[in-house]
Write a protein that binds this DNA or RNA. Structure first.
Lengths: 154, 154
DNA sequence: AGCAGATAGCTGACACGTCAGGTAAAAGTC
DNA sequence: GACTTTTACCTGACGTGTCAGCTATCTGCT
């Protein structure tokens, strides 16, 4: 780790942390949704016929436990419903309620504006491109490391 | 927000989240330290004479409440001590205990290797450069927005 | 059919971050 | 010197994420 690498590594943390905080605050102020709630809703909304928790968790990169906790909260707020699956007694099917749809619709516009204000507005096309490429490389690297279950020496 | 911007924005979240998770796991396995505990220790260590909580919070970009909670946990574990400040009755002075120093020393090596494995090893020099430049632009943008306390339309 | 093991999902305990609201000392005001 | 305001920090409540471990169902083997 060169000191440049280290600086970038730390910057990655602090910058993302701050962005999350600011955009999360905006989202809450505009729609009473946390960023994680929004993530779940946004994904479920794509499949009105219902999504299996496992599939949803995998799609958004969470483990099933995290999703389950979040679902409990979303269900308590009446934004999402868990229904029994006729074909698999273990599984559940997740559906966004009408209220959930409405809340999402109310949230999406301001949320995109907020993301634009805090994130997109900061970057030139070249900078965006560079950032995206770095992230892609990291994503690919993570997938590689995660799939080889072996413990590698660094 | 173009769809490319949106993808990058989402990727930024998920990638950083995964990196934090993995490196955090490594750090815990190697030194029984959470990444946030490590951040605090690493900063306090630089000033053996003691640091004011306010200064520390600002340096690492936290609010004072978050730091205070973390200090309670660190103090309970015996890694950090709060001492009264002779000149200012409100303030406290933070010092890393001998145990804290030892834990940090034990943690730093594996931690750097872990960061290298998960982060630095993934990036070509050009990719690292691009990522860093994007982050710098974002950091500058955040500072600008935060300092102008006005509420801007996006 | 009966049973072992895999699979889907849930739960409880605990660490953590945020927010609103506290306490106490310091600094400014008259 | 008493009064207000500001500053520095702490606390409690609550939403959240992780981990270990649970239950119920399903699948494949015999």
């Amino acid at each position: 780790m060169s000191s440049f690498e280290l600086d970038t590594w730390e910057s990655l943390h602090t910058v993302v942390e701050k962005l999350k905080r600011e955009v999360g605050r905006d989202l809450w102020a505009n729609a009473e949704l946390s960023d994680t709630e929004f993530t779940v809703l946004a994904h479920l909304r794509l499949n009105p016929e219902g999504v299996r928790p496992g599939a949803c968790a995998q799609a958004i990169g969470w483990d099933s436990s995290r999703l389950s906790h979040q679902l409990r909260r979303l269900e308590k707020r009446g934004l999402v419903q868990r229904q029994a699956d006729a074909h698999d007694g273990r599984a559940a099917v997740l559906v966004v309620t009408d209220v959930g749809q409405e809340v999402y619709r109310k949230a999406i516009g301001p949320h995109l504006r907020s993301a634009r204000k805090w994130f997109a507005a900061a970057l030139s096309p070249a900078q965006l491109e560079g950032l995206a490429e770095g992230l892609n490389a990291l994503q690919a690297h993570i997938d590689t490391l995660s799939n080889t279950t072996s413990e590698e020496k660094s």
